[in-house]
Design a protein around this nucleic acid. Structure first.
Lengths: 337, 337
DNA sequence: TTGTATGCGTTATCAA
DNA sequence: TTGATAACGCATACAA
């Protein structure tokens, strides 16, 4: 077991190779240097076991080559929404190609918010991707004030106009899938609406409402807090209670649909026989339920890729035109409706 | 829209308050400073909109107050193993309490490995939690050579002895749950074994073997690559093929068990009537299948907490005794066996 | 082609 | 109690 030696620096290399620090830096970063000097330096590098100190480089260059991936309220996200994982992987792949390190930061408490704010401000990252921000999220202000290059996944209504975002057309997709459900001949169609403090939740409800037009009946909308399985169970109970003759349901997420399915099973209603059911996300839930769910596909990985590119373009100094980028969401029609 | 002004530094505060940088640093970090100087400096801080540069502080202090969370092969993990999310949240919570920033790093490609290695070496983190390393994973060498304070979740056989780890007793748990399955009177019990390039996979198989003792029959072990649903489907087909009279199955994970359940359903076998089935993980899978799975509970969140504490103790300079810490894994007996 | 000197923004040491 | 000054490790303009 070798002694825990001090980390070697450029200085040490220079000493070992008998040259100046400037020359060492030149072989490290590319520049004019004689063949013999280069050879000596390269030998010295492995000899002293040099590993560059990125923190120092960051300080000097004002560039960390790192991009933050901020996951807000990941508790419910990780547990019930496989999308976040796919978004992360998409973003990482794109950043990796550009030789940037993605560092993902979890925000679960006020304490986290404050600390992550400091982290983002401290020069550790050149930009940030923010997932699932709510209205008035304090992180928005931090990024806004700092003018940190950023990209949002989804767009809270009070988002700074200058910050680009990427997402899907929640309202349009919700409307389309509801219309398709209606086209199967259902007469009493309800919705389990969730996360009404987020744009996604609000917009999916708006799309549902638009699809129904004059036939919209507020009593047939059950509001639940989260996009999760448990909420689906509760929401479906509410709906059955209010309208026993219900024959169609649009669930705001696949997890909710899965919960609803369970409640319907317990209540002795068959799907799609008695009740047609559609979900949203095309997550793993959709293919694991019996019957598999008709749903709206979210291109999660691509969302991550686009968010990363939005950051990289800003880092290159490009001036992006404001506004968002909406990705297509094909409807996947399976057996639940 | 205020002009994009240069970031204010300690120097600017000092100028605005008419004091020296040293005094400013003292109010920032705590030290003797007169009431009036303090007031002037505090006013100046908000006036110039100071936000500390953590990169510079890191360089000076040789401490970043950040800990890396390295997720190896997160693709399969995120998609099929809810445990990783819970481990992350547990670790984050513990680090957050100690005012450390958890930065999680995704390793999916050789390129990622190399870049993450540099990142870990560069002084951006004071330590690292590594999840799901395989034998001979290059990241082990990086950490080992660097003497970076680390904690592993699980332990690859070639893990550096000085690196502490946290995990569960895979072999013991597998043995216990298999014995319990045998106690229900099953005669032909097989296993779907997965991830035999990892300690968890190897140990679960060893536990199964131990439970069967002399009755162990290698033909009744189907080997599949991953802990996922698809592997469960394939593995169960293999087993049914080799031994149509099979009446008990230990699946190496809940996701595998869910896949096996589907195959059994298609084959017209009832669970637990014809075949008793047990899983591993006590993940969300276990309560979503019909019937819900009997399985082994993994205290995922606590695993994350302990890993974080292992790091924090090293950062405090504590000398931990080598070896690992194994957390208890209660058996959760539901309806599938 | 190489060496020297300077600064990135902090904290810490030492006189005053 | 405060102010000057020196690092931390690296990159670079400039001089040689």
């Amino acid at each position: 077991m070798p002694p825990p030696r001090k980390r070697a620096t450029v200085h040490d290399i220079a000493a070992a190779a008998g040259v100046s620090r400037g020359t060492v830096s030149r072989v490290l970063n590319g520049g004019y240097v004689s063949a013999e000097a280069r050879a000596a330096i390269e030998a010295a590098i492995t000899e002293v076991g040099y590993v560059p100190n990125t923190a120092a480089r960051t300080l000097k260059m004002r560039r960390s080559q790192a991009v933050g991936f901020v996951a807000l309220e990941p508790h419910s996200l990780f547990l019930d929404d496989p999308n976040i994982g796919a978004i992360m992987l998409g973003a990482n792949a794109a950043l990796s190609l550009a030789d940037h390190q993605m560092v993902s930061l979890v925000v679960e408490s006020a304490r986290d918010t404050e600390r992550v704010g400091r982290y983002l401000s401290g020069g550790f990252v050149d930009g940030a991707i923010v997932v699932s921000a709510r209205t008035h999220d304090p992180i928005i202000k931090v990024i806004s004030d700092l003018r940190l290059p950023a990209a949002f996944v989804g767009h809270p209504p009070d988002l700074d106009q200058r910050i680009p975002y990427v997402g899907i057309d929640n309202a349009g997709s919700a409307r389309a899938v509801t219309e398709r459900l209606l086209a199967t001949g259902r007469r009493r169609v309800g919705m389990i609406a969730a996360a009404l403090d987020r744009d996604s939740g609000i917009d999916r409800l708006a799309g549902f409402r638009a699809a129904l037009g004059d036939a919209f009946d507020g009593d047939l909308v059950a509001e639940v807090p989260h996009y999760d399985y448990g909420s689906g169970i509760k929401g479906m109970r509410l709906l059955l209670d209010r309208e026993p003759a219900i024959d169609g349901v649009f669930a705001a997420s696949d997890a909710i649909a899965a919960g609803a399915l369970e409640t319907l099973r317990e209540a002795g209603r068959s799907v799609p026989g008695d009740v047609g059911l559609v979900g949203f996300d095309d997550s793993t839930w959709a293919v694991r339920t019996q019957p598999p769910l008709s749903t709206v596909h979210q291109p999660a990985k691509q969302i991550g890729t686009v968010a990363a590119q939005l950051i990289l373009r800003q880092l290159r100094g490009e001036q992006l035109d404001p506004g968002g980028q909406l990705l297509p969401t094909p409807i996947v029609w399976r057996d639940s409706a």
